[in-house]
Amino acid sequence: MQLPWWGMLFAFFIAWVVTLPIGVAQATTNQLQPGYGIIAQFKIGYTLSGKPIVNLFFKISGKISTVHALSFLSNLKLGHYMKIPPRCMFTAQHVGTMIAGTVNLSVAW
Protein backbone atom coordinates (compact mmCIF):
# COMPACT_ATOMS: atom_id res chain seq x y z
CA MET A 1 0.00 0.00 0.00
CA GLN A 2 3.08 2.26 0.34
CA LEU A 3 1.70 3.74 3.57
CA PRO A 4 4.25 3.59 6.39
CA TRP A 5 3.24 2.17 9.74
CA TRP A 6 3.21 5.60 11.36
CA GLY A 7 0.79 6.80 8.65
CA MET A 8 -1.79 4.27 9.79
CA LEU A 9 -1.35 5.35 13.42
CA PHE A 10 -1.68 8.98 12.30
CA ALA A 11 -4.95 8.15 10.48
CA PHE A 12 -6.34 6.48 13.59
CA PHE A 13 -5.23 9.40 15.77
CA ILE A 14 -6.98 11.92 13.53
CA ALA A 15 -10.11 9.73 13.55
CA TRP A 16 -9.94 9.57 17.35
CA VAL A 17 -9.64 13.36 17.62
CA VAL A 18 -12.51 14.24 15.26
CA THR A 19 -14.98 11.58 16.44
CA LEU A 20 -16.17 13.56 19.46
CA PRO A 21 -16.87 16.89 17.69
CA ILE A 22 -18.50 15.17 14.71
CA GLY A 23 -20.54 12.96 17.06
CA VAL A 24 -21.75 15.96 19.04
CA ALA A 25 -22.72 17.79 15.84
CA GLN A 26 -24.52 14.72 14.55
CA ALA A 27 -26.36 14.10 17.82
CA THR A 28 -27.38 17.76 18.15
CA THR A 29 -28.54 18.39 14.59
CA ASN A 30 -29.65 14.86 13.62
CA GLN A 31 -27.88 15.28 10.29
CA LEU A 32 -25.29 13.10 8.61
CA GLN A 33 -21.78 13.52 9.89
CA PRO A 34 -19.72 16.19 8.14
CA GLY A 35 -16.69 14.95 6.31
CA TYR A 36 -13.15 15.76 7.22
CA GLY A 37 -11.61 13.99 4.23
CA ILE A 38 -10.16 17.14 2.71
CA ILE A 39 -8.29 18.00 5.91
CA ALA A 40 -6.91 14.47 6.13
CA GLN A 41 -5.86 14.57 2.48
CA PHE A 42 -4.04 17.86 3.01
CA LYS A 43 -2.17 16.55 6.04
CA ILE A 44 -0.93 13.33 4.45
CA GLY A 45 -0.41 14.98 1.07
CA TYR A 46 1.92 17.49 2.65
CA THR A 47 3.72 14.79 4.63
CA LEU A 48 4.04 12.21 1.82
CA SER A 49 3.77 14.20 -1.38
CA GLY A 50 3.70 12.51 -4.77
CA LYS A 51 1.91 9.34 -3.66
CA PRO A 52 -1.79 9.44 -4.59
CA ILE A 53 -2.52 5.83 -3.53
CA VAL A 54 -1.16 6.56 -0.06
CA ASN A 55 -3.31 9.68 0.09
CA LEU A 56 -6.50 7.78 -0.70
CA PHE A 57 -5.67 4.87 1.60
CA PHE A 58 -4.99 7.30 4.45
CA LYS A 59 -8.26 9.13 3.83
CA ILE A 60 -10.29 5.91 3.67
CA SER A 61 -8.68 4.48 6.82
CA GLY A 62 -9.45 7.58 8.85
CA LYS A 63 -12.95 8.01 7.44
CA ILE A 64 -13.96 4.37 7.98
CA SER A 65 -12.68 4.46 11.57
CA THR A 66 -14.76 7.55 12.31
CA VAL A 67 -17.87 6.18 10.60
CA HIS A 68 -17.63 2.91 12.54
CA ALA A 69 -17.13 4.72 15.86
CA LEU A 70 -20.18 6.92 15.23
CA SER A 71 -22.20 3.89 14.16
CA PHE A 72 -21.26 2.05 17.35
CA LEU A 73 -22.27 5.08 19.43
CA SER A 74 -25.56 5.31 17.58
CA ASN A 75 -26.24 1.61 18.20
CA LEU A 76 -25.43 2.01 21.90
CA LYS A 77 -27.90 4.89 22.07
CA LEU A 78 -30.58 2.77 20.40
CA GLY A 79 -29.80 -0.10 22.78
CA HIS A 80 -30.18 2.30 25.71
CA TYR A 81 -33.65 3.31 24.46
CA MET A 82 -34.60 -0.36 24.07
CA LYS A 83 -33.32 -1.17 27.59
CA ILE A 84 -30.62 -3.57 26.37
CA PRO A 85 -27.70 -3.77 28.83
CA PRO A 86 -24.68 -1.77 27.60
CA ARG A 87 -22.25 -4.63 28.17
CA CYS A 88 -24.32 -6.95 25.98
CA MET A 89 -24.47 -4.31 23.23
CA PHE A 90 -20.74 -3.66 23.40
CA THR A 91 -19.94 -7.38 23.39
CA ALA A 92 -22.16 -7.97 20.37
CA GLN A 93 -20.56 -5.06 18.51
CA HIS A 94 -17.06 -6.20 19.44
CA VAL A 95 -17.65 -9.80 18.33
CA GLY A 96 -19.25 -8.63 15.08
CA THR A 97 -16.31 -6.37 14.36
CA MET A 98 -13.80 -9.15 15.02
CA ILE A 99 -15.66 -11.56 12.75
CA ALA A 100 -15.98 -8.97 9.98
CA GLY A 101 -12.32 -8.02 10.27
CA THR A 102 -11.23 -11.65 10.12
CA VAL A 103 -13.40 -12.36 7.08
CA ASN A 104 -12.18 -9.22 5.28
CA LEU A 105 -8.54 -10.04 6.02
CA SER A 106 -8.91 -13.64 4.86
CA VAL A 107 -10.63 -12.54 1.64
CA ALA A 108 -7.85 -10.00 1.02
CA TRP A 109 -5.18 -12.69 1.49
Score class of each variant (00 low, 15 high):
1 M>P: 13
2 Q>I: 07
3 L>T: 11
3 L>C: 08
3 L>M: 15
4 P>A: 03
5 W>Y: 11
6 W>H: 09
6 W>F: 10
7 G>N: 02
7 G>Q: 02
7 G>Y: 04
10 F>G: 07
10 F>H: 08
11 A>L: 07
11 A>R: 02
11 A>E: 05
12 F>A: 09
13 F>V: 13
14 I>F: 14
15 A>Q: 02
17 V>W: 07
18 V>Y: 12
18 V>L: 13
18 V>E: 06
19 T>Q: 04
20 L>D: 01
21 P>H: 10
22 I>H: 06
22 I>D: 01
23 G>Q: 06
25 A>N: 02
29 T>P: 05
29 T>S: 15
30 N>A: 11
30 N>I: 01
30 N>F: 12
30 N>T: 04
32 L>P: 09
33 Q>Y: 14
35 G>D: 13
35 G>A: 15
36 Y>I: 11
36 Y>K: 00
39 I>L: 14
40 A>P: 00
40 A>S: 03
43 K>P: 00
44 I>V: 15
45 G>F: 05
49 S>R: 13
49 S>P: 04
49 S>L: 06
51 K>W: 10
51 K>Q: 14
51 K>S: 09
52 P>L: 04
52 P>N: 04
52 P>H: 06
54 V>E: 10
55 N>F: 03
55 N>H: 06
57 F>R: 02
60 I>E: 11
60 I>V: 13
60 I>Q: 10
61 S>V: 03
61 S>E: 01
62 G>D: 06
62 G>Y: 05
63 K>A: 03
65 S>W: 05
66 T>N: 07
67 V>Q: 07
68 H>A: 13
69 A>K: 09
70 L>V: 03
70 L>C: 08
75 N>W: 07
75 N>K: 03
76 L>Q: 06
76 L>V: 07
78 L>F: 10
79 G>L: 08
80 H>L: 10
82 M>D: 05
83 K>M: 08
83 K>E: 11
85 P>H: 15
88 C>E: 08
88 C>M: 05
90 F>D: 07
91 T>K: 04
93 Q>L: 13
93 Q>K: 00
94 H>N: 01
96 G>N: 14
99 I>G: 03
99 I>Q: 03
100 A>R: 07
101 G>F: 12
101 G>Y: 11
101 G>L: 12
103 V>K: 09
104 N>V: 13
104 N>S: 14
104 N>W: 13
105 L>A: 12
105 L>K: 01
106 S>P: 00
107 V>N: 12
107 V>S: 11
108 A>H: 06
108 A>T: 07
109 W>Y: 15
109 W>K: 11
